[in-house]
Design a protein around this nucleic acid. Structure first.
Lengths: 189, 189
DNA sequence: TCTCCTTGCCTAAAGCCTTTAGGTAAATCT
DNA sequence: AGATTTACCTAAAGGCTTTAGGCAAGGAGA
């Protein structure tokens, strides 16, 4: 009996690949076991259950995204930083649709607090340091950007922009310019 | 043997209620049958399969949302219309979390084209008629608003804003004002 | 009212998925 | 080499989905 060499790490990575291929919802212990040429029960030494597996994939995706975003932001500020950050999300969503879908999932409070989600918020604030926003308005702006990125990329991934011109990429660049201009000239309350 | 009086309509309505109670993902033929005090197989005369059931719930949610949005927009324009439209979404998401989650789901092209999703886009364009936006920029603005609404409400529903002040409702009203101001004073390319 | 027909709901069964319990053999340590 | 750990297995229970075929309730027509 040749061993397959399972580890939690390898399962989670393979689960992420699987998510990109067949969609996050179709990531199941059964399918994963099939891919490793292994019986399903064998996974349960490495992963608590199906939910645990999925949670770990979510955390992996959040880490990867935060890593890329941090790398893209290095040395940039203002409009450049905004666009770089946005494009990281968009590119990641296109290259890894399953992982990106995973990254949107709700985590329970403790898990979320320990996740790379925290780094995302910090990165976004770093971008806004290039604009003249402080206090509550900075938080509002973070939320605007976060909501827009999340919403746009999700809509694009779902094909929501496919059936009417202009094409999604054009809206994307235009809207980033609009947002940049909004952040530079933020309306005071 | 007293009949339960199943119809497709009643199943879909009950499915929507169920979604609000236990989450859209947990809407299963099994659970639905249990609620009607009926065997699972009995549902299959009224609904093609589990996916068909879920799709019908999505369509119901889209209809309900479009109805409410249309009602809210009647007689309003500009900032009032924007806020009314946004609040309809937010209120619906809070009152019917399962249905709202359903309304975000991807539909295949034909189903989507026949759905109330089309009305949503029209309503959003109607709002923008109150601002001076035409051509591609109008489409971009529709997408900005759509992305923001979808993203914000989803993040709020997931508790994404729970762990730092200011509270979500404050960001919501403030950001709607910011967007109103952005739409009134849209940066030209 | 009786009969017929539709159809609403049932039983049965097959197939897949998740999860737990307990066993065997491979890899690792001393 | 022997002992221990651990990777993977078999077995089994229970849930969900879906199809096929059957009975009886309720309405339609005589």
């Amino acid at each position: 009996m040749v061993r397959a060499g399972l580890t939690t790490e390898r399962l989670v990575r393979a689960g992420a690949e699987l998510a990109d291929e067949v969609g996050f919802d179709n990531v199941t212990p059964s399918e994963l076991a099939r891919r490793f040429g292994v019986k399903v029960a064998s996974l349960y030494s490495h992963v608590k259950n199906a939910h645990d597996l999925r949670t770990r994939i979510v955390l992996l995706a959040l880490e990867e995204l935060a890593d890329r975003a941090a790398a893209a932001l290095a040395g940039r500020s203002g409009r450049d930083a905004l666009i770089a950050f946005a494009d990281v999300h968009r590119d990641y969503a296109r290259a890894h649709p399953g992982r990106f879908a995973a990254a949107q999932l709700r985590l329970d409070a403790e898990t979320a607090a320990a996740s790379a989600g925290v780094r995302h918020a910090e990165l976004m604030r770093a971008i806004l340091r290039g604009y003249d926003l402080t206090g509550p308005d900075q938080t509002h702006a973070v939320r605007l950007l976060g909501s827009f990125f999340r919403g746009f990329v999700a809509l694009e991934a779902d094909g929501g922009f496919d059936h009417s011109p202009p094409a999604a990429p054009e809206s994307w660049t235009r809207l980033l310019d609009v947002l940049d201009s909004l952040l530079r000239d933020w309306p005071r309350s």
